[in-house]
Amino acid sequence: MGIWFTEKQTEHFGITMKINRSLHSEQTDFQKLDMVETQEWGNMLLLDDMVMTTEKDEFVYHEMVAHIPLFTHPNPEKILIVGGGDGGVIREVLKHSEVKKATLVDIDGKVIEYSKKYLPSIAGKLDDRRVEVKVGDGFMHIAEAENQYDVILVDSTEPVGPAVNLFTKGFYAGISKALKEDGLFVAQSDNPWFKAELIAQVQKDVKEIFPITRLYTANIPTYPSGMWCFTLGSKKYDPLEADSSRFPDIETNYYTKELHKAAFVLPKFVADLTK
């Protein structure tokens, strides 16, 4: 039968996959970290027994976190990524020629270290000359920043452990302060099947701070329920008004110019969470 791993996504539901071998396992200062080789998804990063990314489907999440906001902002020169130590969002951000500097702040340096070792196709741009990597608390980095960034991308784990503070109204207010006067941000916002109340609260909190607040989705098969949500908050630019015909061509596997706006077309039960 081999070795099988199950991520228990709720008390009554989980997703199961066959593991070929364990590559690394460690209790870091912040969380349980595992790198495993799977039969179906290639190498996989687990944090506290939750799937963070896999070699096979990672492009969906990383492209949708990065390209929606960076194509919405007309001149995204200075970018901050909170979390994202696997490097996938950085890789996508650097596809935008306007980007002059991308700062990544992840609280757990071990995620960065072992992603470079076992997920090189994802983490391969962390040493790029335009990238500054800081091991530290993203919440505090945001709190200490003011009028610095064009775009902030919050690539956090689910709201447990070290990521709890990254789903609070105070954090979103800090993001607003850290952004320039025409800045915008995107944060992963979990899934509508199991975390509907969380999404509704995030939408409510962000709307009280940002004049433009949008929710969009993507299909990520190894994440709970497969339907994943992202919240965009903007001071000035609306992603639905972006002229996609002027977007330069970049290499992607999921994101397209047509999908830029289509991703905001929500099923009714998801749209209801934004009211």
Rank of each mutant, 00 (worst) to 15 (best):
I175C: 08
T217M: 11
N191M: 07
L273E: 12
I199K: 05
V154G: 02
T168I: 04
Y223N: 02
I152R: 11
G183D: 11
N165H: 10
T222Y: 07
V265R: 04
P221G: 00
T256F: 00
E251L: 13
D272K: 14
R246K: 15
P224W: 05
C229I: 00
L240D: 08
K261M: 09
G226K: 04
S225Q: 03
K204F: 15
W228D: 02
S176P: 06
N219A: 14
K261E: 12
F167D: 06
F171P: 06
P224E: 05
N165G: 14
V160W: 03
G226R: 00
S234R: 01
I250M: 04
K236G: 00
P159E: 02
L184G: 03
L166G: 00
F171G: 07
F264Y: 01
V164R: 09
V164N: 05
P211D: 00
F171I: 04
Q201S: 14
E181A: 06
V160Q: 13
F210C: 03
P221A: 05
A173K: 14
V154L: 13
A242M: 10
A178S: 13
E208A: 15
K204P: 14
E208C: 06
A200V: 01
A218T: 12
A173Y: 11
R214M: 03
L232P: 03
L198A: 08
L273A: 10
L153A: 10
V202L: 15
F185D: 08
I175Y: 01
F167W: 05
L166V: 03
E208I: 01
A271C: 11
G170M: 07
P267T: 01
T274I: 00
G161S: 10
T222P: 05
T157C: 13
C229E: 14
F210D: 09
I152K: 06
K268C: 09
V202A: 14
D272N: 15
T222I: 08
K236A: 01
K204L: 12
Q201V: 00
T231H: 13
K261N: 15
N165T: 04
A218Q: 03
D155N: 11
T252W: 11
N253I: 06
E208S: 13
R214I: 05
D243S: 08
T252I: 10
Y216L: 04
S156V: 06
T168A: 01
Y216T: 07
K204R: 15
K169V: 10
S176N: 14
M227S: 02
